[in-house]
Each structure stands twice: as C-alpha cells, then as structure tokens.
Design a protein around this nucleic acid. Structure first.
Lengths: 252, 252
DNA sequence: GAAAACGCTTGATCTAGATCAATAGTCACT
DNA sequence: AGTGACTATTGATCTAGATCAAGCGTTTTC
C-alpha cells in the first residue's frame, strides 16, 4: 500500500520537475514546491496517434493541452471541407488558449504523429494561478507570446511573398528544434506539403516548387519529409527579402 | 479641503463605474468595490491627437492602454519605412497585450483621431488580479479573445480574396460600432485607404476599386470617409464567398 | 492665398502565384 | 504482390490583384 503510494507520488512529482520542457512550459520561473502543486493538477493521458483529435472546433472548453513529445496542428475547418492551418505545435507549446474567452474551442487540434500530451484542466489552473503569482505571471506571458506570434504571422501573410514565407517557416522550425535540443539543420517535417501551404497561405504546388528551387540554389536538401538546411545564413536573407541572396552576392 | 477631496474622489470613482464601456472592458463581471479598486490604478491622461503615439515598437512595456473615445491603430513598422497594420482599436479595446511576454513593445500604436485613452500600469493590474479572481478571469478572457481575433485574421489573409476581406472588415466595424451604441450602418472611417489596405494585405488601389464596385452594386454608399451600409445581408454573403450575391440571386 | 503635399480614384499593364492536368512515388490494405 | 488512395512533383495556362502612371480634389504650410 504505502509502497504503491510512493511510486504513484513519484510518478506525479517527477513529471513536470524532470521534464526537459520546464523552461519552455508553464513551470518556467516557478519555485520547486509550486511546480509540485502544478504537477498535481496536470493529467498525463496515454499517447495519441496520428489523426487523433485533442478537440474540435465548437467543443466545450475545459482543458489546455501541452505537447510533451510529438507534434500537433491547430486548424479552422471550413464548411466546404477545406481548412486553414493556424499553427504547428512542438513540445512545450500550449494549445487551446483561444478557447478561454467563450469557453468553447475556436479551432480544432489534430495530432500529426504519435505524441504525448499533458492536459491541464483550466479551472484548476486558474485557481492555482491565484495562489501562485509567478504562475499567473507565466500564464500572462504565454498568452502574450501567442498574440505576438500571431501578429508575426499576420505580417508574414500580409507582406511577404511565397519564398520569404517558406524560408521564414523553415527557420522558425529550425529555431524551435534547436531550443528543444534537436538539430537546427537536420529534421523531419511531421506535416504534409498541403498543410504547410495552408499555414502559409500558398498552394501545395507552390510549396513543392519552392522546395525544389531552394534545393537547386543550395539552400537546403529535401527528400520527402527529411529536411537538411545547408545555408541558414542565406535562408535568413531570403526571409528579409534581400534582392539577391547568394547567386550574385557572396558572404566573405 | 474636504470639499475638494470629495470632488477628486468622485472623479476617480465615477470613471470606470459610469463608463459606458464597462461591459466591454476590464470591469466586466467585477463587483462594485472591485471596480473601485481598479479605478484607483487607472490613469486618465489628457486627450491625444491624430498622429500621437501611445508607444513605439521596442519601447519598454509598463502599461496597457484602453481606448475610451476615438480610435487607435497598431502596426509593425519595417526598416524600409513601410508598415503592416495589425489592428484598429475602438472604445473599450485593450492595447499592448503582445508586450507582456518580453516586457517590451512588439508593435507601435498611433492615435487616428483625437482620443481619450486610459492607461493601466501592468504591475499594479497584475497585483490586483491576484487579489480579485474575477479580474484575473477577465484578463485571461481578454487575452484569449485577442488570440481568437488574430486567428480569424489569419484565416482572412490566408483564404479570402480581396472583396471577401473588405466586406468582412466593414462588417466587423459595423458590429463593433453597434455594440458601442453607434449606428451599425452609418459611420466614419478614421483610417486611410492605405491603412485599410495594409491591414487586409491589399494595395490601396484595390481597396479604392472595391469601394467603387460595392457602391455600384448597391451594397453601400461611400463618400471619402463616410460609409453607409445599404445591404448588410448581402455584404455578409460576400464574406462567405457566395458565388452570386445579389446580381442574380435575390432575397425574397 | 498660392504652392506643395497628400489622399483618393481610375485606367493600362504586368506578374506572382493559383489553377488545371498529368505522372509518379509511397503507403495501407488484403 | 496487387489495388486503391493519398502525397508530391512538374509543366502549361490563367487570373486576381499588384504595379505603374496620370489626374484631381483636399488639406496643410508658410
């Protein structure tokens, strides 16, 4: 009995505290014992598989979700079966923040590959964040970050051309993988060309052609879902919209 | 002495409590005495004029702002002097939420017409929201709403064509004016065609042509900044992307 | 109150990227 | 191993909306 209880307690306690995502996720800036309080309300469900939904647009909202491993896309389905992809979520990223206002999900969330997801009942989180000011602060920060990210996307869609968009997308993934301890220059895409296109406001064909072009220009190597960024610096120039990035201009 | 104090106290107390925006702004859902606590931290500065900045991109963040009367645009300036307009803010709308994360403004905010603006020092607001759970809840709701709104804009920019975008923009303004007690069908635009274009990811010329087209189709009447929506129902059809809205299809 | 600067409209032209179409590679079943 | 269903690539064509250009009210400036 007591043995089992200890194990169970360890399972709970270990989770957030030993999670590699602690500096990216909710525990950021929290004291040891506050992390344990958070641990107590986090649910860790069995892994989900490609195609499983965390929630669908219109569902009643009760929890936020955090990707622990794997990846998730959020999207707004349209009547005609199409969809607008709103985001791709990597480990440590919070999902469902747009649902707080109306207590109803504003978009759908689908798992792109086998993924472990933490579930955080919002009512409990809200209560806890009253007791733990640093948790409240971190919540404000995470909500604010989401707004800032969305605003960056608005600029991307409003002002940037196709190649600038794809370059920015690849560099964003690269950065995020790096922060999570993965390679910044060699990774696998868990989303399809179609989903990338939807996210960037481009047709599938355009995305495909750009991958080919970037490869021809020596910016990267692509083979299906496997991407190797060969020249991150020049790719950054593409994002800025530099006239001639590489073919004439050389970096000395 | 005591007479003056009463007046001063009344000024403070009246402000949020008697503000017509109370159901749109932070006091929403708060008890009487909590509104008074909020009142105590809100600063009401002298009116600002067209072209004045609330803050600029990169400024240190210390306050959120709420439009009381007038209107404000937020925008991301780019090196080359261009800008991406991120939003137009009407009375009751909160500005600066994207700055919480980095404690630094992520965009600039400029007043479009003579406007009264409330300033709310964020540190005080955060402290108060620890003491007043319903204020914390309202903050989460407002941050969440902003995310939802940005996501709607992503879909607009990613999937909608020019006329769908402009129709959606006009209907959004219409709705917002209505909720504030103004006419839903007769209003003045405080922003230029250029700013509308930037917000919607369109060229000025396209915006101008669309206004003319909408007018020719009898959807609205436009004279410079003065807009009269003549057929809101058909305008809603345009947003949905209905094939034939009006010219063949009639509403009976 | 003239001049300059700006904002808006309208027309002509151009082009980035969408759409259409065909093929081939890959995966999921059985 | 074969069938059907996706997914990606590549080429040909088309078009929505950008860009270029010109003119004209309106507002601002000195």
């Amino acid at each position: 009995m007591s043995g089992r209880k200890v194990i169970s307690f360890e399972n709970i306690k270990v989770a957030c505290k030993n999670c590699s995502l602690t500096t990216l996720c909710l525990p950021m800036g929290l004291e040891q014992d506050d992390v344990e309080k958070l641990d107590a309300i986090v649910k860790r469900n069995r892994p989900l598989h490609r195609g499983d939904h965390l929630f669908r647009e219109g569902d009643k909202f009760h929890s936020l979700f955090v990707v622990k491993t794997g990846s998730v896309k959020t999207y707004a389905p349209s009547e005609d079966g199409g969809e607008q992809v709103l985001g791709f979520h990597l480990p440590g990223e919070l999902i469902g923040l747009d649902a707080i206002e109306k207590e109803q999900h504003h978009c759908s969330a689908k798992v792109l590959e086998t993924s472990a997801i933490c579930e955080i009942p919002f009512v409990s989180l809200e209560q806890l964040s009253c007791e733990v000011p640093s948790l409240q602060h971190q919540m404000y920060r995470l909500l604010s970050r989401e707004i800032g990210h969305d605003e960056d996307m608005l600029t991307l869609l409003g002002k940037r051309n196709a190649e600038e968009r794809l370059a920015a997308f690849l560099l964003s993934l690269s950065e995020r993988f790096k922060r999570r301890g993965f390679s910044a220059s060699d990774f696998y895409l868990s989303m399809s060309r179609h989903e990338i296109g939807s996210y960037l406001g481009l047709a599938v064909e355009t995305v495909s052609r750009l991958f080919t072009r970037f490869q021809d220009e020596g910016l990267l190597k692509v083979e299906r879902k496997h991407i190797q960024l060969l020249d991150i610096e020049r790719l950054s120039c593409v994002v800025q919209g530099d006239e001639r990035n590489g073919s004439k201009r050389q970096y000395t």
